[in-house]
């Protein structure tokens, strides 16, 4: 299989994810965009681990990390919701509240 269409997919996912991160205002959606970016990285890691499996091993580590990240991120969002009711990342610019 040719690498190109994996590249296209991963570049597309990165760009979409980046676009989401910089334009969206809902924290869960931003988390989703971040997940897209991580997935894009994973696609490349997996597709190009042709000589050995290191890439795939790393991809599995990335999956674990992103699960942890989502877990903590959603907890923070939920806390935010409890405290402010109105979740908009533009409002959450104090480091502590």
């Amino acid at each position: 299989m040719i690498a190109f269409h994996f590249l296209i997919t991963s570049i597309g996912l990165v760009l979409i994810g980046l676009y989401g991160v910089i334009t969206l205002r809902h924290p869960i959606k931003i988390l989703m965009s971040i997940e897209l970016i991580l997935n894009a990285a994973n696609i490349n890691l997996v597709a190009f681990s042709t000589e050995n499996l290191i890439g795939q091993g790393f991809a599995s580590l990335v999956i674990a990390i992103s699960a942890a990240e989502v877990c903590v991120g959603l907890a923070i969002v939920y806390n935010l919701y409890r405290l402010k009711k109105d979740i908009d990342v533009m409002e959450v610019n104090a480091l502590k509240w």
Binding site: M1, I2, T50, E51, Q56, S60
Partner: peptide
């Protein structure tokens, strides 16, 4: 311009486990 082939290694559970 990248034209290399992808795939080729078998990402079987055993191999990944060994690697990890």
């Amino acid at each position: 311009s990248i034209t290399r082939e992808v795939g080729g290694t078998k990402g079987l559970t055993q191999n990944i486990g060994r690697l990890l």
